[in-house]
């Protein structure tokens, strides 16, 4: 457990431990006043820390090993999830999961990258780095959703598409390009949520939708801060500057009009309370689904292409 505590989380966690100890003693002594005082001190401290997070600290939160992953959200938010496997071409990529499920009282297709929580499950999930068959599975499932007229929800959480020899042989670039192309004209609503790491093309391969939402402590960019540092500064030591320069936080992305909405996380981050995170996300998804479902199909598709067609900054 101790390994999974980030440096800037420590002061709060230490105080929380203290409270717990005091509570144990409170059978013998009346110290509720002290406990209350300490609790409000924790709240202030946490607020102070989390309101002043640096972009690099946010990257660390997005990668927190106890953060809820796609399947956690699926199990906490939905019922009757039936996971579907395989791209019908090559194999079943474990780094992308998907299937039909009930969200509230409607049936949806929900797809996302899946990380593992320990070495064994991380090897099984390839650390959440999909191969081409993962993107092709996602595409197949989206077409299935289209056939049965069910909306699609994608949950993005990946350190990137896998840069392996076989991935290249099987057309990683084509698999991602094809998804961008096909998602642009999929005849059902798509809601995209970045729930952790959104690294480059590997993230975008599930990232075209009518609404693009982002959890508060996530990052989404063209490259990871580490790789950016190694390429532009020619050293791995500038990751904090790179994180700053890349403008990769949810606040930045909202300002740049890349995302439509920031979804708040429980106090201290999603990893502190999976259930609460899932409840918040579920509420937002139901609301967003209702609003996109109102649009006629033609309008929906026009808007989607227009939305991405307008992204960019230039001087004419």
């Amino acid at each position: 457990m101790a390994l999974n505590i980030l440096e800037f989380e420590k002061p709060v966690l230490e105080l929380e431990k203290k409270i717990e100890e005091m509570r144990k003693m409170s059978d013998q002594l009346d110290i509720s006043n002290e406990i209350n005082k300490l609790e409000s001190k924790i709240n202030d401290l946490r607020k102070n820390i989390f309101e002043n997070l640096t972009p690099w600290q946010i990257v660390q939160l997005a990668r927190h090993p106890e953060r809820p992953y796609t399947l956690d959200y699926i199990y906490l938010m939905t019922e009757n999830f039936v996971e579907l496997h395989g791209d019908r071409r090559f194999g079943d990529d474990k780094a992308i999961v998907g299937g039909f499920a009930n969200l509230g009282d409607q049936s949806v297709m929900i797809i996302g990258q899946q990380k593992g929580r320990d070495t064994k499950s991380n090897l099984y999930r390839n650390f959440g780095m999909p191969n081409p068959e993962g993107y092709r599975k996602a595409y197949r499932l989206m077409k299935l959703a289209e056939k049965f007229n069910k909306p699609v929800i994608t949950l993005i959480d990946t350190p990137g598409a896998y840069p392996g020899i076989e991935a290249e042989e099987r057309g990683q670039a084509e698999a991602i390009a094809k998804n961008l192309f096909e998602m642009s004209k999929l005849q059902v609503p798509i809601i995209v949520v970045i729930i952790g790491e959104g690294a480059s093309g590997g993230a975008l391969g599930l990232g075209i939708g009518d609404r693009v939402l982002m959890l508060q402590y996530c990052w989404y960019s063209v490259i990871s801060p580490e790789s950016c540092s190694s390429i532009l500064w020619r050293s791995w030591d500038f990751k904090e500057q790179a994180a700053e320069a890349l403008k990769l936080t949810s606040q930045d992305l909202l300002r740049l009009k890349i995302i439509d909405r920031i979804i708040p996380e429980p106090e201290g981050g999603a990893h502190r309370d999976h259930k609460k995170s899932a409840d918040i996300l579920k509420g937002v998804l139901l609301e967003e689904l209702q609003s996109v479902s109102k649009l006629k199909k033609d309008k929906l598709l026009d808007n989607r292409i227009k939305k991405f067609g307008e992204m960019g900054f230039f001087k004419d």
């Binding site: 991602i176 390009a177 961008l180 192309f181 096909e182 642009s184 004209k185 480059s200 093309g201 975008l204 990232g207 075209i208 989404y220 960019s221 063209v222 490259i223 950016c228 390429i231 532009l232 320069a245 890349l246 403008k247 990769l248 930045d252 992305l253 740049l256 890349i258 989607r304 292409i305 991405f308 067609g309 992204m311 960019g312 900054f313």
Partner: peptide
């Protein structure tokens, strides 16, 4: 993608692909 435009350059993949669609 042009790294110095960060996520905005990533979105050019989305932009060009959806226009091609």
């Amino acid at each position: 993608a042009r790294m110095m435009e960060g996520v905005v350059s990533l979105m050019q993949l989305a932009k060009t692909s959806s226009k091609l669609a």
